[in-house]
């Protein structure tokens, strides 16, 4: 029920803006709150962030590339098996200087969604990402990664071709690259599938993005054996940008336009541009040795999450 209403609302928000549409959305929202009963959403609650992070009109990776970068030339393939449309990458310029950009890509309409496999990457996608990142490192080009995926694709072929190995190998090899790496979690940070391109020197996270070890739906189905507790699961998983900043797992929260990135894509990109520039300037000042040393150090800051008994 709630699911259908959310879908309808999203569809309407995507439609041509008019008084009638706005009224209808307001009506549906009331219904939605009624349908949820005691799970009534408060503004800023974790589940609302999940919905915003998945909003169908939110800018996707290629939108950010179009709005933030120039001279983008897409590079394809992992030179092993294939080219994964769910993960895109290529060389471009950010404010005049060369960068390598890689990111998960979702699709907006049904056809695109299928082509992009809903942003769920296969092993060849992760291997392409590493290939491009190594290429960048070889020629001292800084790397920007744009993270937005529900998770790595859980399919037979993905397992046969070593989904786990592809992710693991990325984590190890990206840690070695001797160029600045800036990670932008701009939509869904879906577990290992997100992390495979999210190891870097600065991790920026958009205000309404989420980053989690498991989706609230799956968490609910494991812990409560149903999907009815996803709102609660979203809350206890501590997956918002604010939560992650508190744990020092991200460095900076990037503000979004009021209401979320979908309300004004250009402004969303402009807000990201400023933070991106600052981070890139900071990192360019560091030597390659220092960069790699600090990257390893920041991963070791996790020790506060253990205690000596």
């Amino acid at each position: 029920m709630a699911e259908d209403l959310e879908k309808q609302i999203a569809e309407l928000e995507a439609a041509e803006d008019s008084e009638a549409v706005r009224e209808e959305i307001a009506r549906l929202r009331e219904q939605l709150e009624g349908a949820r009963g005691d799970q009534k959403l408060e503004r800023g609650e974790a589940w609302e962030r999940v919905l915003l992070a998945r909003h169908p009109q939110r800018p996707y990776t290629l939108d950010y590339i179009r709005m933030l970068l120039t001279e983008f030339s897409e590079l394809h393939g992992d030179r092993r098996f294939g080219d994964d449309p769910a993960l895109v990458g290529g060389l471009a310029r950010f404010e005049g200087r060369a960068v390598m950009v890689v990111g998960h890509q979702k699709g907006r309409d049904t056809k695109q969604k299928l082509q992009r496999n809903f942003g769920m990457t296969n092993p060849e996608g992760y291997r392409k990402a590493l290939r491009l990142m190594r290429l960048a490192a070889k020629f001292s080009v800084p790397i920007i990664t744009l993270v937005d995926t529900p998770g790595a694709y859980p399919g037979i072929g993905a397992e046969e071709r070593g989904q786990a190995e592809a992710i693991a190998y990325n984590l190890k090899e990206i840690a070695k690259l001797r160029v600045p790496i800036i990670v932008v979690i701009h939509g869904e940070g879906g577990s290992g599938g997100a992390l495979a391109i999210a190891v870097g020197d600065r991790v920026l996270m958009l205000e309404n993005a989420v980053y989690s070890v498991i989706s609230p739906e799956s968490c609910s189905s494991i812990l409560w054996r149903d999907w009815d507790h996803k709102v609660e699961a979203a809350r206890i998983l501590k997956l918002t940008a604010q939560d992650l900043l508190g744990f020092h797992l991200v460095d900076t929260i990037v503000p979004e336009p009021p209401g979320g990135g979908h309300t004004d894509q250009e402004q969303a990109a402009a807000l990201l541009r400023d933070v991106l520039r600052a981070a890139l300037d900071e990192l360019r000042a560091l030597s390659a040795d220092e960069l790699v040393r600090q990257r390893h150090q920041r991963l070791r800051k996790l020790a506060p999450f253990v205690k000596e008994a």
Binding site: I167, A168, L171, K172, E173, A175, K176, G189, S191, G192, L195, A198, V199, Y211, S212, V213, I214, C219, I222, L223, L237, K238, L239, D243, L244, F247, L249, R295, H296, L299, R300, L302, F305
Partner: peptide
């Protein structure tokens, strides 16, 4: 796999361990 009850902190262990293995390489 990663422990759900420690959320994204669990997830980051994948990166931490893998980076340490990069140093062992």
């Amino acid at each position: 796999g990663a422990r759900m009850m420690e959320g994204a902190i669990s997830l980051m262990q994948l990166a931490t361990i893998s980076a340490a293995l990069a140093q062992l390489d």
